[in-house]
């Protein structure tokens, strides 16, 4: 597996298009924040943010043109972070699903809210 130092020159047009796409997505994020989607508020915001992050990584950070090993390393890291967060959320989001006794919102009496 050889990592050759080849310099891919991305056309200015691509950079500008990606830049415009990022702007548009930012505007969408702001607009959407005024509409109430309930539980989907967070999901929509995160999906848009993720798309933006992918665009930056692929084009501005050259992941698309670089050795595929870097892409693999980056993807694997993302997968493992997702595993960590999703499996942890299986715990924190489901605490009261079977045993109702535990379902006490711990934030209600928190000191931080007294201040």
């Amino acid at each position: 597996m050889s990592i050759k130092a080849h310099h891919h020159i991305t056309p200015l047009k691509t950079y500008l298009s990606v830049g415009v796409a990022l702007m548009v997505l930012t505007i969408i994020t702001v607009v959407v924040s005024f509409v109430h989607f309930g539980a989907f508020n967070l999901i929509i915001a995160m999906v848009i943010a993720s798309i933006k992050a992918v665009l930056v990584a692929l084009f501005f950070m050259h992941l698309l043109y670089d050795n595929k090993l870097f892409m693999a390393i980056f993807s694997i890291s993302l997968i493992f972070v997702s595993v960590f967060i999703i499996l942890t959320m299986f715990d924190t989001m489901q605490r009261d699903s079977i045993d109702e006794v535990k379902a006490k919102p711990i934030k209600k009496n928190a000191i931080i809210y007294d201040k």
């Binding site: 493992f80 499996l87 299986f90 715990d91 605490r95 079977i98 045993d99 535990k102």
Partner: peptide, 22 residues
């Protein structure tokens, strides 16, 4: 090895759902 860590926490107050998966 990355998918099983919750088995250390069966009695920690972790949700039963997570415990079953782990």
């Amino acid at each position: 090895s990355f998918l099983v860590w919750g088995h250390h926490m069966f009695t920690s107050g972790q949700s039963e759902f997570a415990a079953m998966i782990f």
